[in-house]
Design a binder for these strands. Sequence first.
RNA 1: GGAGAGUUGGCAGAGUGGUCGAAUGCGGCGGUCUUGAAAACCGUUGACGGGUUAAACCGUCCGGGGGUUCGAAUCCCUCACUCUCCGCCA
Length: 423
Amino acid sequence: MLDAKLFRGELDSLAKELGRRGYELDTEAVVALETRRRDLQTKTQELQNQRNTRSKEIGAAKAKGEDIEPLLAEVNDMGEDLKRCEQDLAEIQSNLQTIGLSVPNLLDASVPDGKSEDDNVEVKKWGEPKAFDFEPLDHVALTESGALDFEAGSLLTGSRFTVMRNEVARLHRALSQYMLNLHTSQHGYTEMNVPYIVNANSLTGTSQLPKFEEDLFALKGDSNYYLIPTSEVPLTNLVRDKIIDKTDLPIRLTAHTPCFRSEAGSYGKDTRGMIRQHQFEKVELVHVVHPDTSWDALEELAGNAQTVLQNLELPYRMVTLCSGDTGFAAAKTYDIEVWLPGQQMYREISSCSNCTDFQARRMKARFRNDEGKTELVHTLNGSGLAVGRTLVAVLENYQQEDGSVNVPTVLQDFMQTDTILKK
RNA sequence: GGAGAGUUGGCAGAGUGGUCGAAUGCGGCGGUCUUGAAAACCGUUGACGGGUUAAACCGUCCGGGGGUUCGAAUCCCUCACUCUCCGCCA
């Protein structure tokens, strides 16, 4: 959510700024609502003031034992007017709130203009795509033995679910353990274990709701519960409605959780293999920081994610998302894309965003500054990494001509072998 | 699932219809004392919105929502959560 004051000032420049994303702000509607809000608020507060004054007079008169009947008669007809004003004001404010919740974050000046992912700008490349002296397979072909069992996934549930078997299941577990260990022991994160089901308030705080409900799995019944689409939601919402002691900043949290996404609107996209699943696992990185340090924090967070890929010796590149591709809550986002030999392309494996005060304002997540005033924190999040896609990357990058797959050095202790999928 | 007790400022905790946005303690901030610090003592200290150059000032907020009343932290309804006991259970 943006600062409400922005909707009262230079609306045209705000609309222009939001236009970079392709978002159209209905400035006329905002102006009309704001004007009415101001009038109604003034009137309501005047009436409330009158009521309060009269009531205090009555209280004082009663305390002195005076007759209060004349005073009561005087005050009798005030209620209706006030009630109507309060109701009208509440309705206007609710309308303004609805608009406020649907407006995306302002982009940082460094975000390049563009419409789609084709306009994203590469900022870094690490490692060289390995030259194979044979035709490399994709992860589906590599696991035809049933190590990745897509038929079983659709038998048990439906499309976009996968069963992992034996060595590949263990490799998947090795990856998540390795990532968690790295971030907690080397990068200063606190490991958390959080609910996989959250309420609507949490999802509103990180801004999946109200606009993107169709992307979520909602639980039946009237509980208002949803499966988490990412542990960004529970981790970030830990500071919702909190005034944080500034000595506790920065807060760095990590968690390994499953993520559940309906993938509405991506029908027919990435249907082969386990690139795009309704359920996948992710090790998430979240920072809650002082506003002055969030841009440094974004670089660090992205660096923490890259370290995983570097240690696994997987080639990748990093891009800055363009204005049209940057997510709703983010002021700026880096995508880290890993090289997949089976697809001969870079695919997203981590997305690291600085949400500035956008989520903090929705969550009322604040700290006390040096003047003793409360101030909104900045929040950041990023994948460190998506475990399923990392598994795909390892399988495809470490494959041998005979169809077996070498185990990355850093995982060999855990796996207790240096090769899997031997024939 | 059954019965009961709770939810008040950053934290702890009083307050059961009228100058209560709320005692007191802790914490925070400023000061006295000290070479410095601690201790002690004195003062100060809620959030949000409107308003103002800044103030003054006005309004809202005592778990959420609704109601009664001229007036609600206080009474009523409802929902959520916490705790205790019983039952069940990994």
